[in-house]
Structure formats: structure tokens, C-alpha cells
Amino acid sequence: MKKNYLKRILASALTLALGVVTLTGCGSASAKESPAEQTSSEASAQEQSDSKVYRTLDEIKESGEINIGVFSDKNPFGYVDENGEYQGYDVYFANKLGEDLGVKINFVSTEAASRVEYLETGKVDIVLANFTVTEERAEKVDFALPYMNVALGVVSPKDKVIKDLSEIKADDQVIVISGTTAETYLEKNYPDIKLQKFDTYATAKTSFENGTGVAWANDNTEVIAYAIENPGYEVGIPSLGSQDTIAPAVSKGNSTLLDWINSEIESLGKENFFHADYEATLIDTYGKDYEETLVVEGGKVADSSATEASSEASTATSSEAATDASSAE
């Protein structure tokens, strides 16, 4: 029995020693990184990016399958219906991509916070999960042309509508979903507002219904849909922060797939595909009113305040897109 005990002490001492070595080893290496070491680590990073994580367009076609990351709990953009089928605005587009590529689609359910990770590790080929284009994200993944407009919005119960963020008291909590643009925006611009963070849409909504937060901040599309479906709630702040776009994303450097998606979005614009998508998936929720505000056709963002002519001149993301769009008209 005594011997047994000694073994145990020895084992824990060894574990401790190992732990300390590992920790200090890592710490000091990064602390004392000399310029020479830095270049070598850069070189190895270069090598790493050479051994790519993503699959090219040809590899995807060859395998006959494409992995697309979508939401499974964000109705009406990406969700699983009562028959277990993926549905929604994003999914409708994903199905079209799969059809035109001639491959089978594997839908991969993602959480907001893991979208970048999924692309960086090559677990999916494309993320079509209502992914707002931001500068920070664009450093990590490659965005294709946009297919939807978005801004942030805040919904709150009707009896205590919050029309301005200054109405939120110090003890009040605002619900956000981890990894969304709403979280980033509030963290950056309103660090004093207490955030209650959830990792899925489903839990955030349930908790909001249970009254744990005074308001819920998210993409305005989402909060508008929520207020329409839940009569006791009102979107007090319909637009917050900058107007952004939503676009498909691929792993950094996957240019063959990116180019293909871009040309696909442009050619789909000619058949008004995204309007059809809206009418198939979103019209039940938003009605006809939001169609022009939300839909981006052919990857070409229209400036809603400008006239048609000036918007055509100013917003073409590429010359190709401009010619496509004008020839469509």
C-alpha cells in the first residue's frame, strides 16, 4: 500500500514537472523570439499555408460531394424543418450551388462563433451561414460577392421597448450570440453594456422569452423576424451600426472555388435568382416590403438612397459585374 502511494506521488510530481516545462517552454520561446527565429517561424507558416487545408474546385467536383456550413437554428435563413430537411434563404442558394456544380451537398450545422474555424480547418468548403462581411473576418477567410444586405437591430418586449441604447440601465443585460457582428459591435462601441452571451440561436431566443435580458441585439433581419413571429415584442432599434452585406465565404486562398461562386452569383443575377429565393423562403416572414432592402442581386449592392443611374456607376464591385448587370437591364 505504501509503495503504491509513493508511485502516485512520483506520478503527480512528474506530471507537474512536465506541465511546468511545457508552459515555460512555450512562454519563453515566444517571449524571446529573436528576429532570426521570427523569420524561421514565418517560413514555417509559409510552408503551412502551402500544405493547404481547403479543396479546390476540381477536387470537390472529383469527390462528388461538397460540404457547406449553414445554420440549423436560424429561421428563415438556415434551419432544419419538421421533416429534418435543411431550409431557408441560405440553404436555397446552397442547393442551387450544389446543383450547378453537379455534386451532392453535405450540410454541416455551424454555430456563429465557429464559422471562421470551420473554414480555417477545411471542415467545410463553403460557409453559407448568414455570414456578414467584416474586415476582421476578411483577414481570415475569403468572401465572395454579397447576396444580402444586413444591419444590426435590437428587439425588446413591447411594454418596455428600448428605442435607444442609452435607455439600457447598468444592471440590465442585453442578449447576444457569441461570434456575431452584434457582439463585436457592442463590445467595441458600448463596453459598459452588460452582455449575456449564448452560443446558439435556440438558447438565446428561449432565454430572451424567459425574460433574462431586457433586449436582444442581432442582425436586424433576425430581430424583425422575431418580432413578427412573437406579438409581444417590438424592434425598437431597427438599424444600428453600419450597413453591411452577407456573402458566401471560402477558406483563405481557395481562389478556384471563390471565382466559381462569384461567376455563379453574377450569372444567377441575370435570372433574378435571389428575388426568387426571397419569394420562396423569406416572403412568409417579411412580406413584400423588405424584398428590395434585403436582396442583393448579382453581387451588386444597390445604394438605396441614390438614383438608379448613380448606383450603377458607383457600386459595381468589379467591372465584370457592372457589364453583367447593365446587360441584364
Partner: peptide, 8 residues
């Protein structure tokens, strides 16, 4: 998880 989602 949250920090990964915020700053990658």
C-alpha cells in the same frame, strides 16, 4: 470560444 469568435 467567445474570444475565438470575436478576434479569431
Amino acid at each position: 470560444k467567445d474570444l475565438i469568435g470575436l478576434y479569431y
